[in-house]
Design a protein around this nucleic acid. Structure first.
Lengths: 197, 197
DNA sequence: GTTTTTGTTGATTGATCAGTCAATAAAAAA
DNA sequence: TTTTTTATTGACTGATCAATCAACAAAAAC
């Protein structure tokens, strides 16, 4: 079995297994053995490739962040108008790929863990800033600065809130409904009032 | 020292210590010894009064829920108009008492734990239903049914989202700003359009 | 004044895990 | 062909904790 060039494959498999395991357990209380087992390797190998458990968790978080960012970039490129930019950002966050329950459970777990881990906190801050600036790129042309800021904060909070509710499998199950809520919020905004309303 | 009638005092002290400990650690990974120590007793005593650790956590969650509900009832009693009812519910959730970082960290931690624990999940569902019905009691007279529902979901998600953001100590620090965001959302709703807009 | 109830703890047990290490084996390099 | 590098694991260690228990003490009941 032992071939060469396994490192990237194993790392990817372990990260996938981590997301899966966290998603199923619903928390970061997942053992290295369980993750490793799910990836079809021994726990020793997981340590071999990632060092400490925290490193694996951080790598997993970074992976989720990277994927989300890549999707967002792609969606933004297709947007033609400011409003479409906002919708694109919203749509990405509620896409089937991102709004899966494992992924969401992982996000939630990382939010909690971030209170303990400086590294995770930094990563989440990067995410928050990116989301904010993506939203502002669409909102700034449409609203006076203060209102645009507020709208961006509101949408960001809405996204987080809808993620949590999804994680609890409580009402609000599907991505489409969640996205529609945010779109309804957008529809009520006094858009196009940049030069004083 | 050993007097009689300690049970309720100890239980209260242990629950307070639990909230404090969770708030500081930022997660439910708190040892019984730490909680007990904080309450000035031995870990054995904590087990004596609560049985298993899960029971203590459940009691703590139940306590938070009870407090929030009591505050909400009080605030709703003072409200005169439907809109005031909605504002009252929002205000309670962002009151200084409820929007403290320990309390919020505890809520977040319980959200995560609820994925594992049936008991906690049930408690959270009770909370969600109460919040929803409190909001609807104000929104239903002001909006067509479908829109009222949507507004209630949105506000609930906003509250959750703002709680999370507060927990991360990321931007949005104070209760007043958070409450203002939700109020701004309310201001943009087409209220008073119950009989078709 | 004896007995029971209530309050309390230190010491211990047993389980769970993260992380280490020595050993094995295939592939690549020398 | 020997040597090194890469891949891999089973077995072990050490730490951490929840939970238990026997024991002690003060108050209450009898």
């Amino acid at each position: 079995m032992p071939k060469v060039g396994m490192q990237p494959l194993r790392r990817k498999a372990l990260i996938d297994a981590t997301i899966l395991a966290i998603g199923e357990r619903g928390s970061l209380d997942v053992t290295m053995s369980e993750i490793a087992g799910r990836a079809g390797v021994s726990s020793a190998l997981a340590h071999h490739y990632f060092g400490a458990k925290d490193d694996l968790l951080e790598a997993t978080m970074r992976y989720l962040l990277t994927e989300l960012n890549a999707d967002a970039r792609l969606a933004l490129r297709a947007a033609q108008t400011p409003l479409q930019r906002v919708s694109a950002v919203v749509a990405v966050n509620f896409s089937e790929k991102q709004f899966r329950s494992e992924t969401i459970a992982a996000w939630l777990a990382f939010y909690v863990e971030a209170q303990k881990s400086q590294a995770l906190r930094r990563l989440l801050r990067v995410y928050a800033r990116r989301l904010h600036s993506n939203l502002m790129s669409g909102l700034a042309p449409l609203l006076p600065p203060a209102q645009a800021e507020r709208a961006a904060e509101t949408i960001a909070a809405l996204i987080d809130g809808l993620y949590i509710r999804r994680a609890l499998r409580d009402g609000l199950p599907d991505a489409a409904t969640a996205a529609a809520l945010v779109e309804a919020y957008l529809a009520n905004l006094p858009l196009g009032t940049k030069g004083r309303a």
